[in-house]
Write a protein that binds this DNA or RNA. Sequence first.
DNA 1: TAAACAAAGATTTTCGAAAATTATGGAATT
DNA 2: AATTCCATAATTTTCGAAAATCTTTGTTTA
Lengths: 210, 210
Amino acid sequence: MTLSEAAYASLRRDIVRGNLPPGQPLRLEALRARYDMGFSPLREALNRLQAERLVLAAPMRGFVVAPLSLDEMWQAIEARILIESEALRLAIARGGDTWEAGIVAALHALRLAAGRGEAEALEARHQEFHLALISACGSNWLLDFARQLSAATERYRAPILAGESGPRDVQAEHAALAEAAIIRKADVAAAALARHYRLTGELIAARLAA
Amino acid sequence: MTLSEAAYASLRRDIVRGNLPPGQPLRLEALRARYDMGFSPLREALNRLQAERLVLAAPMRGFVVAPLSLDEMWQAIEARILIESEALRLAIARGGDTWEAGIVAALHALRLAAGRGEAEALEARHQEFHLALISACGSNWLLDFARQLSAATERYRAPILAGESGPRDVQAEHAALAEAAIIRKADVAAAALARHYRLTGELIAARLAA
DNA sequence: TAAACAAAGATTTTCGAAAATTATGGAATT
DNA sequence: AATTCCATAATTTTCGAAAATCTTTGTTTA
């Protein structure tokens, strides 16, 4: 892996997890010290992240971690529902045995991780599950948009919903979603997906209000 | 404007217009000579374009202009319809006087440009018209995706449909679309938009088959 | 002849310094 | 006191060379 790629991965991680807080200026010298590399790979990574809306750039005055707001969160969630619902319908129409098996496997891995309670691994399994659902959609554009929106919404989830799930049975939602997809009930699956994401949004909004 | 931004704009233009043909390797030394600047701003621009899927990057072996294919074209067109239909519905629900006026103005400018027949300016007006329709949608994500997809589909349109329009009355399609949007008939407008883009796709596909 | 290897060349990637620009703080002016 | 101006400092941006990696070409070996 090149340094430029490593810089991209590290910065993305640190932004999504909130290690680099929203609104924080990203000074090159500080990043250089933090990640132990020169300017070039860092600037290249920042340019990629700018295109993904994780950082903002202003000419001649550098980069900033993209700020968070409730309004922006709902924009991201609704866009994600639009993209992933359609991708899910396409996958349901086109997916074969491999796709089904991928969903079952991802759901199982997600259950196991949820049982162990390692936030780290759980989050990875969660993303993989949602990716497995739409992976057979056949559109690189939709998959790419979904990937970007996943990172954008994760920025709100991770710091606010750490661990706690309240009266909500998230695993049941996932299971129902997987079931609906596999028995090819597109409308049911799409509705479940939308409900799943909107519920998360409302939970975050409620937590922030308090 | 910084050199990095200039590099981004120039490369994007040259890729969308086909001056840099699909699949062509983008050697740094060649770009340096072509755009008269050092490596750094070029690499930063290429990283941004990579995130927008206009160029492909492979570690340690550089960048390539993203190739074209009929399959990729339809993926982009269908994704565009998905995004812009929803954005159009949102804009119709939220748009005010300024939004309406923007559409009327953009349509008028588009008509004037079409009368003059300068492909250069016509294309700019065309993009501005489609942007005006959705500009009031309230979602930065949707606007950004639409912008990317516009560039992706333009790569197919520009070189293949240069000038010629055949038996199709594109201006009538635009006028009908604007009218439906302004009188807030969301379903009609969304259907017109989808038909508009699919027609273009079919025209390109037919032209390529011949 | 084909495969494996090595040297030379081409290309990408990275670094650190130089250039350009913006931000800061204090003195001078109104 | 508030504003303008200027010098200084901090920061971003850009460059060109050096390092690392890949590709090509020719040679040797099986």
